[in-house]
Design a protein around this nucleic acid. Structure first.
Lengths: 111, 111
DNA sequence: ATATGTGCAAACTCTTTGCATGGAG
DNA sequence: CTCCATGCAAAGAGTTTGCACATAT
């Protein structure tokens, strides 16, 4: 399912999707298999402020995330406007960064 | 205490600080008073991926946060390299953003 | 028969809430 | 005496773990 899905999913979304195939499947199994897939390098965690941890397939090029306040979905957006070397305050060394955009997505803007 | 403190604090840090003045003070009181101070506009929440919610004094100019992986403290860094208008993917409208830097702080770099 | 994956329930963490109390005015 | 902030404990939400069972090999 992560292969088909271009955006990070919440645990509940994964659970619902999984239940559409195996109706009685429990939430514990979802968590267990998410951890397994992470161990295998198939997916990665996407920790988001206020939203908690979502999951998306691994190996996507460096990118960031957009959160739609209306449909409450998280979208990938490609590319990155950040130059880490110019960001480090004096004395600090930066090894990674996360950028989150908040707003309304193309689909919700159309309605 | 938030007036003296230039960086966001975890609930536990607030609790420890408060206990240094009122030793038996409980965690529920800390949460209650944080909510109160937010309502009064004295402090704001700072939700951080993987760290949960921290708190800092309100009214600081637009800025972002740096997380030191070594001492596990969150620092403010002033200014902002983001131009929202250039970031919105086509069809998306952006109304705010959050940027987090991860690395080692000036103090830990000195050791 | 053995091993693996699952459901279920309990445990754990973080946060919030209800209730009774104790001190301040 | 009346209020209100507090401690304590219980309750929730999200996540993890132990255990027993079913299924496949």
């Amino acid at each position: 399912m992560f292969l088909e899905n271009p955006r990070p999913l919440r645990v509940e979304e994964v659970h619902e999707f999984a239940q559409s195939k195996v109706p009685q499947l429990g939430i514990a199994t979802v968590y267990r298999n998410l951890k397994l897939l992470i161990g295998e390098g198939e997916i990665v965690e996407v920790p988001v402020p206020e939203l908690g941890t979502l999951y998306e397939r691994a190996g996507i090029d460096h990118h960031h995330h957009f959160y739609c306040r209306r449909c409450r979905k998280l979208f990938d957006f490609p590319g990155c406007p950040i130059d880490e070397s110019k960001l480090a305050p004096p004395g600090f060394s930066v090894d990674s960064h996360e950028l989150f955009l908040f707003g309304v997505c193309y689909r919700c803007n159309d309605e």
